[in-house]
Amino acid sequence: MQYFKYFLAFILSMFILIPLMMAVTISLNPSNTDILANMGSWKSFIPQVFSFDNYRAVWSDPYHPFGLYLFNTFLITSISLTLSLVVNSCAAFSLAWGEGKYRKYILAAIISVLAIPGESLVLPQLLMVSKANLVDTYAVQILPGLANAFFIFLFYQFFSKIPKDLIDAARVDGFSLFQTYLKIALPLSKPVCVTVCILHFLGIWNSYLWPIMVTRGPEVRPLSVAMAAYFGSNQTQWGNVMAFAVCMAIPVIIFFLIIQRQFIASITGSSVKG
């Protein structure tokens, strides 16, 4: 049984790793002829040549400034993540412990947004940002995704399970509602913050539809859109395209490696015990 589990895990991981190995192998091979010749054989999965020419080409392409794209993506992602954590957790805390009379109805409205496909909101959002003169800016890539119904729901689920005694104790200690959120609830919600961080990070890093609609030139363009453009202008240069893809994937892998322990902890559950 144990061996079967390992075997199954091996097969599943191969499904995920083989395309990655292929991308890395191709990215390390400077010869397009060799790449095409090896395609379909085991040689396309295990590197035969270790050359960084393709990576150099990607980083030095004057028409597709990879460094700028990477900077744009980092900037958009880091600001989005920070603001998203603040906005969504704040909203969830006030829904869970605020004094508003209609909190339940607001929560129901927020949850119902989860049922609406994001794509159907893209056009109205585009009209709005266009009217607000935000097209082709960093802000347009950050603001619309900040308030997220799913993240609010995740935080709400956590905050509403904080024992009432803890919130009452904070009131007796003189905390305002915001101080209770900032000093008690937010530090306790670390597992949810990590989950939201990962999901939001992946969402922004891989988002394509919205950035391609609201960005015009390379100045504010993120990697995901740039990747498509790069692929369009280097269709026969598989080595370069794969080097671009690997460079784009590395930050995600590093981010996940850093945060994976907390991510697993957040999935395996946590509770507040005083």
Binding site: A169, I184, P187, K273
Partner: peptide, 11 residues
Amino acid sequence: MVFQSYALYPH
């Protein structure tokens, strides 16, 4: 106030 569940801040 001292609460039944102690209500100590866990962190």
